[in-house]
Structure formats: structure tokens, C-alpha cells
Simulated scan of single mutants.
Amino acid sequence: MAKANHRKQTKTLRSLSKRQWIKIAASATAVVALVGGSVFAVHAHNAQQSSLNRITSYSATDANALGVSRGADREDLRGGKAGDTYVTVKINGKNRAVVGSHFTDVKSVLDQGDITLETGDVVKPDLKTKVKESTVITIERADANLETSDSPIGFNVVTKETSDLPKGQQKVQTEGQEGVMETTSLVTKAGKKTVSSNVFTSFVKQAPVDKVILIGTGSNSSVSSAAANIGSTVPVGDMQQWAHDYLLSTGGSEADFTATVYIISHESGWRINAQNPSGAYGLPQALPGSKMSSAGADWATNYQTQLKWFWGYCNGRYGSVQGAYNHWLSAHSY
């Protein structure tokens, strides 16, 4: 009786039929395709993550926070474009970042930055030169000088209730102090006569300090201290009065208005056309300002459009304008 052979019969490469060779080739092709697809997916994922993690804006105006970055998630919530890039434009030695999308050449940067060339301007590199984020565009304007001036930013009066004082009694907790707005303009003169003056940058050099008045509620009040509430702010000027009335008419509170005044005063000093060297623009210092177009086509000149966009962003990012205010107190940005 012959012994059973339990050893596996292994085919050699020479013994494979033509049909078997075809099957092996097909399997190998499928494996290569699978691996290639996986590699492509990994690269695509990494590219997406890189885009999400790229910083797309900077703190706008606070003197202590000019270097604080604002993340891409803020810009996306405000209607920003993931493809936004930054190109530095230097006019007569003064830098400004122009923020936009789909830059192609020097001319496209100047167009999106609303920078108008005048006769005699020397531009380097030339208008048809392709650009990237490392590109620095220089413009030399003859007979023009950069002039910097300071102007005051008014402070507000904030009242806060406290049980630490007898009912009705008032006490000044903090004296008010005006802030400082620094504006740099490109001024062209013919002799002593000013031919043109264009604002290049305008930002809060020093934020105002509100005057805080404590109002006593008595020992039976539920308010334990002045720090327990954000307070009520007295509107100053047409813009603040509109903001106050609009907020209250849409379900907001006095505290929401106080938070609004605080942030806007620190970001732009209530200047509609405030423009930081980073490129941030308007009352809320949107970066770039064109992001506010989601709230209206007149975003560059209408304070109501700018404020509506600001509140929309605060609600989306922090849940409320008071949430943005609390973040601002710790981060000096929002």
C-alpha cells in the first residue's frame, strides 16, 4: 500500500499556464491601483489639512495684540475664501498687506487692493509680473510724502449695578480716557498746496478707557458685585445709537450693546474706513474687508452693513457678541 503524500504540490513559475499568468498580471494591476489611490487620498487629506491650518488673518488694532493671529476657522465662518493669499505692497516705504484670491500678476493685486496708480508712479516689478506670497510690490510716487497724524477716540460711560453700595448711591470706579487713532496718508503737494491726500492706513494706536460708574442696589439685591454684570453703555453718536436700538429691537440686551461698543472701540475706534497695515478693514476689522459683502454690497461705506456682519460672525463663532467680548478680554482679539 502506497504512502499518502501530504506535502503540498507547489507550482513553479515555469509550470504556470498562460491563463494563470494573465490572472497574476490582473491582480498585480489592481494592487497598484489600490495603493496609488491610497497615496493620492493621503496627499489630498494632507493638502486639505494644510489649508485648514493656514493662518488667514491677524489681530487688527489693539496696541497689545498687533501680532496675535486669527485662525482660518474665523475667516471661513465669516464667508472667507480658502484660497486667500497675501501680497505686500510698499508705497514710498510704507508697507500694507493686500489680501485677496486668485492673484495672477501685479496689476491684479493693485486692483483688489483698490490701489490707483498715478502718472509718474514707478512700480516694481512691472504690472504683468506674476506674483506669489513672497512677492513685495514697491511703488515710488514723486512729489508725495507719507504724513502721519493722531486723532482722539471718544470714550463711553458704562454703568454697573452693585450691592456693595446703598441703593441709589453712585461711585466712579474708573475715569474715562480718550483713545488715539493713528492715520497715515499719502499726500501730494504742489508747492504749499495739497493736490491729493489718500488714507493709506488708519488704526487704533491706543484704545479708549470707558468711564465706569457703579450704582448701588442695596443689600437685598441679587447683584453681588460690580463684576457680576457687564453693565449698560450710554450710546454716543448716530452709529452707536443705531446699533443700540437695532440690537434691542431684534432681541438683544443692554449687555450686548456694551460688548459691541467695547470690541468696536478697540478694533477700529468707530471709523468706518479704518484700515490696518495687515489689510483688515472697517468697524469690525474684517480681513479682507470684502468678506463683509455677504452682508451687503455697500460694505465699504455703510456702518449698518458692517455691524450686521459683525454680529453675525460673533453669533456664529462665539454664540453671541458677549461671548466674543469675553474672548477679547483674554486674547485681545476675537
Rank of each mutant, 00 (worst) to 15 (best):
L127W: 08
F155I: 08
T258C: 03
D238E: 15
L52Y: 14
A65G: 15
A324L: 09
T217S: 10
I230F: 07
D84R: 10
G218H: 03
D62P: 01
K167Y: 09
N198E: 12
G191C: 07
Q206P: 00
R74D: 14
P288Y: 06
S219A: 13
G100V: 02
T129F: 01
L13F: 14
S151D: 12
G80R: 09
D76K: 13
S51A: 15
L13T: 11
V157N: 04
G289C: 03
E161C: 05
L247T: 03
I153P: 07
A243T: 11
A142K: 14
T119H: 08
P208S: 09
T194D: 06
Y318I: 15
I115G: 08
L117N: 04
K81T: 12
S268G: 02
D73L: 10
K130F: 01
I230K: 05
G289D: 05
A63V: 06
T104K: 13
K189H: 09
D111A: 12
W21L: 15
V109A: 11
T88N: 11
A324M: 09
G282S: 05
Q206M: 02
K132F: 01
H266Q: 11
A259N: 04
T116G: 00
T162H: 08
D298K: 06
A295W: 01
A144D: 03
G289L: 02
S163N: 15
T116Q: 12
G179P: 13
K81G: 07
G319M: 11
A142E: 14
N95W: 00
T12Q: 10
G100K: 09
S221Q: 10
K308E: 11
H266K: 10
T250S: 10
L77Q: 09
G67W: 06
S268C: 06
A243L: 07
G37H: 10
L248E: 06
R54F: 04
K291A: 11
Q49N: 13
I215A: 01
V234M: 09
T56V: 11
